[in-house]
Nucleic acid binder design. Sequence first.
DNA 1: GCGCCACTCCCCCGCGCGGGGGAGAAAAAT
DNA 2: ATTTTTCTCCCCCGCGCGGGGGAGTGGCGC
Lengths: 218, 218
Amino acid sequence: MGITMPDSIRILIVDDHAVVRKGLAMVLRLEPDLEVVGEAENGRVGLEAAKKLQPGIVLVDLIMPEMDGQEMALALRKSNPKIKIMMLTGTEVDDRVFDLVAAGIEGYVLKNVEPAELVRAIHAVAHGEAYLHPDVMKKIVSRMQPQHTPTITLTPRELEVLEWMASPNTYKQIAAQLSVSEETVRSHAKNILEKMKQPNRAQAVLAAMKMRLIKLNG
Amino acid sequence: MGITMPDSIRILIVDDHAVVRKGLAMVLRLEPDLEVVGEAENGRVGLEAAKKLQPGIVLVDLIMPEMDGQEMALALRKSNPKIKIMMLTGTEVDDRVFDLVAAGIEGYVLKNVEPAELVRAIHAVAHGEAYLHPDVMKKIVSRMQPQHTPTITLTPRELEVLEWMASPNTYKQIAAQLSVSEETVRSHAKNILEKMKQPNRAQAVLAAMKMRLIKLNG
DNA sequence: GCGCCACTCCCCCGCGCGGGGGAGAAAAAT
DNA sequence: ATTTTTCTCCCCCGCGCGGGGGAGTGGCGC
């Protein structure tokens, strides 16, 4: 009861439906190393509870009145970045996952998961791993995929120059690096801008990143 | 033996080590609905085999002579996008995962997985889900996360100007949008560049994106 | 009251860069 | 063998922008 296992995982449940909270708590309490330390019925209350209780992980429903799961997750991530966040949502996966994952959510599972999987997910997240539902993963992966984009055809040399354009170097410096004349680099740059229909170097680099022609660091 | 189950998963194994191939095949053949239809010892051979055999999924080792797993995966993805690709690699997860995931690899598991997990992974991928090893997922998620960066403290107005700096607009145009003088915008820009220690607008925008001060579209 | 900071605006200077030309040689495609 | 593409290099022009000053206002905190 009041005994706190030294290595147990402290859990806070945030969901607007009491039955769901109780059901989750019951399931989780079956695990010897999981400890449900609190419940909250919306994001605002959950946020306060999290700050007070300092759980290792919070299970948060996405759709809630007053303050929804996304708002709460973002706020909690800012105020207490060490507390892991596991999103619990209905059956559908909407576009908010991108913001949530980008904000550093560690877990995302659907409510129809088997209890065993949820427990596994909690363990994984508590141990510093990320646990995303396959559908979520798929969505993210598909977002990362080259959207069979009407890719502009840049020549190899142009692609090379484009990569250098993302560096702090001036055209003169790039020319030195490539062992060609500055005029050559400027000529390539000119063609690149025209092909990409971009007004300047900054926009060209941004556009190149969007269409994954160049990467953010290597 | 020669009997092909109507709903069985046809598997092609590509690995340069015969023992690994045989071991994998033996393990997988224990499953009634998995059918190892071929083996190949490098990417080039594997590519040919895949085109000929049309398996549902190929297990590909990353490190191989002549043509490695990455090359093969990219080539196969182009020629036969319907064939699922599951990457099998050593213990370490290197940076190539980004290119592979971006290219649409469905699976990525380490060689030290339990057979049961590999079988689960194969089923998942065969059913259209993505199955990435937790470490891989973590790497991808962490790449998406704001790396608890020593964020520069920009004033609200500077942040606003910085966002506009990522647009195609000139300072004059930005000034018009913000209803201030061009000199004001240029003044802000000057301070932003100094604070961010960036030599020019393009680099400032890139740096801002890296530290997630501004987003790629939104 | 005083100082600090954010926001605004102004001047000057010089280089970086976008945009318009053109041209020649080698490689690839036809 | 001819055409097309790619890579290289050159000229000129003018604006965008980086960097160096300074200065006045209002708000916030001490």
